[in-house]
Design a protein around this nucleic acid. Structure first.
Length: 154
DNA sequence: GCCAACGTTGGC
DNA sequence: GCCAACGTTGGC
């Protein structure tokens, strides 16, 4: 069982949107960064816990939990010419972009803001808090998850 | 809207 | 394979 942080702009796709989806489940499409793709393709497993982070909003932070709900498979938006995520260089015979489905788990009773995270000693080494980090998917340690989950349910 | 940080692209 | 130019991310 592993833990992950996944960023989404709530204007585009929020945790509430995930909750409202049929089956409370959605493909995490549109990732076009190789490191983030590699995490989904190579390291995620069904049942892994996802900290759902809202970026580009005020305040940014973690709003709740989801889980990995599928094995990795090719991102269909890469082959859809009408999608803004269309990538002409992704060959259907050898797909460049891989995703997993995520499923809604719960909404924190209290959002754990970026500011609060920066103030938590347990998160001093957390990847998403390191300077210059822009990765939309990052691994989270069990200790980091525990600290955030506790703050979110407080 | 600004801009620092970072990833990708493509000419050479 | 270098690196300048460009595009994107995301906090503020």
């Amino acid at each position: 069982m592993r833990y992950w942080l996944m960023k989404s702009e709530p204007d585009v796709f929020s945790l509430a949107d995930l909750k409202a989806r049929p089956g409370q489940r959605e493909p995490w499409d549109g990732v076009r960064n190789y490191q983030a793709r590699n995490f989904m393709r190579d390291a995620m497993q069904k049942g892994d816990t996802v900290l759902f982070y809202h970026s580009n909003t005020n305040p940014p932070g973690i709003v709740g939990l989801a889980e990995v709900a599928s094995d990795p498979y090719p991102d269909p938006t890469a082959f859809d010419k009408k999608s803004k995520y269309y990538d002409a260089k992704s060959d259907p015979e050898n797909p460049r972009w891989i995703l997993v489905d995520v499923r809604y788990c719960e909404t924190f009773s209290r959002m754990v803001t970026l500011e609060a995270m920066k103030a938590m000693p347990a998160l001093a080494e957390m990847r998403v808090l390191q300077r210059g980090n822009r990765l939309s998917i990052t691994p989270v340690t069990a200790a980091e998850f525990k600290a955030i989950n506790k703050a979110g349910l407080a």
